[in-house]
Each structure stands twice: as C-alpha cells, then as structure tokens.
Design a protein around this nucleic acid. Structure first.
Lengths: 158, 158
DNA sequence: GTATAATTGTTAGTATATTAACAATACAGG
DNA sequence: CCTGTATTGTTAATATACTAACAATTATAC
C-alpha cells in the first residue's frame, strides 16, 4: 500500500482514496518542478522561461506572436508579457511589431538563446530519462491513462 | 493511445514517452489547482490558505508553530509568514508568542476560521469525489503506484 | 560556562500566476 | 462606411513561491 509512504504525511481531509490520488499528483508535480528548476537555475533560467525558448526554437525563422505563446503554455497574456520582458532583458529573444497586425508582437529567439538551449537541452533530456527510467513502457502508458482519466473527471465534475 | 489527445499540444522536446508522462503530470496538476481555486475563490480563500486552515483545525486546541506548518506544507518559513499574515488579517487565525520558546510563534484557528471550513470542506470533498469518480479503486491504486515510482525516479536521478 | 551551531520568524528582492482594466487595432454585420 | 465587438499587449494589484540575509533565541560542544 502506498499510503503515507511515498508522499509524506499528507494533509488528508476526506480520508478517501480519491483525495490521496490528487494529493499524490500535487506532491509529485512539486517534486518534479523543484528538480527541474535546480537545473535551470544553474543557467539563470526558470522552467517557464525554458519552455518559451523551446517553443521559439521550433519557429526559429518565423517567430511566434505573444498571444500564441500564452495559448500554448496555458497562461494568460499578462504572464507572457512578464516572461518575455525578462527573456528579452537577458538577450534570449527579440520582440518586434508586426506590419500585418499592429496589435501583435512577434518574439524571435536570438543566437544567444539558441546557444543557451544547446547547453541546457541535453542535460534536461538526460534528467527526464533518468527520472522516468523507473517505469517501463507499459507503466508509462498506464500512468498516462490514469492522468487522462483524472482530466476527464475534471471536465465531468465541473 | 493517449498522445496529443488529453493533454493538448504539449511542448515536447525529447519526444519520448517519459517526457510525455511528466508533461501529463504537469498539465493534470495545473488543471486540478485551477479547478480547486475556483471553488476557494468564492470564499475569499486560496488553496494554500485552505490547507493551513485544515492543518490548524486538526490542532484546534493546541495550535501549531509556524515552522511546523512550513514543514508539513513543503514550503519555506518565508512563505508561511506571508500566508499567516493574510489569514490573520482576515481573522481566520491568531498568531501569538510562546513562553517556552521565545523564537517560535503559535498559530491558532479562530471560530471564524472554523466556520469558514464548515462551509467550504463539504463542497471541496464533493468536488474531489466527483473528479475521481472516473477511476475505480484499482485504477486509483495503480495511479498512486505510478506516481510513487516517479518520486522514486526523482530520488534516483539526483 | 562559554563559544559555536542551529533554529525561528521576518524582511527584501525577484519570478510566476491571476484578475481587472485599458488603449490600440482589427473584424463583423448591417 | 460605420458602429459594435473581439483581439492584442500592457499595466496595476494581489497571492504564491524562492533565495539570501538578519536578529533573537535556543541548543550543543568543549
């Protein structure tokens, strides 16, 4: 039984298996994010900043409009403004107006940003592989299915 | 296959099943937190504030020292100071010095805080049950086991 | 006993996220 | 065309987190 072994002394309320499951997702997420950010911090990055650079690297030549970045990252436009501010300040990307649509701003990754990715991505992928090496292929698929069901439950229980 | 169905157009990097699994944990966590906070916001609470009240309600008569709150919630003492500030400002708890240890501060839930919990907890538990109703008991246990393995992977891959 | 550790809470600084409002711009229907 | 609506980016206010530093206090070592 998993209870109160892998997830610390959780703050259970309903004391049901469902709550335990959601608490486990919380704790696992937090552990992963802290682990990821330890790596990114060595390069002066954060996890959301890294994600933006990865997005922009896939559109190295075309760039991406800020609102599209927000939609892909599931954050608001206000968040994107701040994130792009800090990345631009550090020279990781440029932000320019669009002639076609004068409301939009186009973010484009710089050579410095690409160089940062070239250093960080291999380490990050190594970490992902090390962390998930404890699960075989079938276990990963089972975990993905369970999480997909929770997402379905969120839609149902709204 | 789960891929690119339940978790949107994720920003995959290594394009491996391990990364997909971690991304699914991220997205599921974010969806749950946003859902929970929608409920809490109706009562002027946030998810961390609610958790502190639940902790303190279990120690209604003894109270809890701020540093212990931080350890149980896996946040720093600096975070606890801010959270307790806001809860105290709203009259949900008191913060008093200890004669035994003059460094420590003891937080105690107030009658107003208990009344808040009496209103919110039933709704919160209902939501947890609705969200997790899509999983039967065995599926919940399988999901818990998968998450426990990821936590083990985090320890291994450090 | 006294010098050194460690612990506790707080503060400052920064990053992430949310909501609400706003101006500029683009789009829509009539 | 022109009026109303939608979108885009920004800003302000607030909450959550993290690190680093700090003073006060307690614990430990010798």
């Amino acid at each position: 039984m998993v209870r109160f072994e892998s997830f610390g002394e959780a703050n259970l309320l309903c004391d049901c298996l469902g709550e335990e499951t959601l608490v486990a997702i919380f704790r696992t997420y937090n552990a992963i994010v802290k682990d990821f950010n330890r790596l990114f911090a060595r390069f002066g990055l954060t996890e959301p900043q890294f994600n933006i650079l990865v997005l922009l690297a896939k559109r190295e030549n075309e760039g991406m409009v800020l609102s599209e970045i927000g939609r892909k990252m599931l954050v608001t436009r206000a968040d994107v403004t701040g994130l792009i501010d800090r990345l631009e300040r550090n020279g990781m990307l440029t932000r320019n107006s669009q002639p076609h649509d004068r409301r939009a701003k186009l973010a484009m990754i710089t050579e410095k940003g690409l160089g940062m990715l070239r250093r960080v991505v291999p380490l990050h992928c190594d970490k992902i592989n090390r962390v998930t090496a404890v699960l075989d292929g079938q276990e990963k698929r089972t975990l993905l299915n369970g999480l997909a069901k929770v997402n379905q439950g969120l839609v149902n229980g709204r």
